[in-house]
Amino acid sequence: MEQIQKTDVIVTESVMKVYDADGIPVNALNGVDLTIQSGEFTAIVGPSGSGKTTFLNIISGLDAPTEGKVWLSGKVLSEMGGNELSDFRRDNIGFIFQAYNLIPVLTVEENVEYIMLLAGVPKTERHDRVVAMLETVGLKDVEDRLPTQLSGGQQQRVAIARAMVSEPAIILADEPTANLDSKTGADLLEMMRRLNDETGMTFIFSTHDPMVMESAKRLITLRDGKVDTDETK
């Protein structure tokens, strides 16, 4: 392994993932070697089953690789214990999921506040940052609503706010526009692109959406669990 550079936020080395599908081994990733640098706005694309979501799960420590290593902000994920990994994710990664995955019993404000609460951010600071973030994503009037009382677009905005409010180094977004209409999707994409420009956060998407591919500064295509193409625009 070559020396990891300071600007390399994610480095994967020969990452393999084999799932057991009812006794039949399925190779989701077949030796992926990638380096993603700080501030990138990268889209991982490829057909269904190419390993996009698996790749995101593995580089975030949500899943463990069968073989290979992942460095995230210079640390090897497989060497961390459960609590350490949770803390590391909390402090370094923001997640945006296709199905929004908000906590159903918490209000919009509480959902956005939750990660900062886990991180022990003081109450006043939490409140100020939540208010500012909700304003950024255009949700300051619905802060007391529960996720079920919001539209899909609004829920995804909450998810974006939750992912970004603690200012992590990396935002991982798994098909963030898949459940949204094209107008809402375009608005949110524009917002994320703007935040990437303004804050320098690293955005990594897995997507089928041509609009996201268009916006991305780097496009990595996976096919059969391997990097097929890797283009920087």
């Binding site: 609590n83 803390d87 995955n101 886990l118």
Partner: peptide
């Protein structure tokens, strides 16, 4: 699924 999300966003196993 909810527990998975809670863990994903940084909730510790003990929590």
């Amino acid at each position: 699924r909810e527990y998975g999300v809670l863990k994903a966003v940084g909730t510790k196993p003990i929590q």
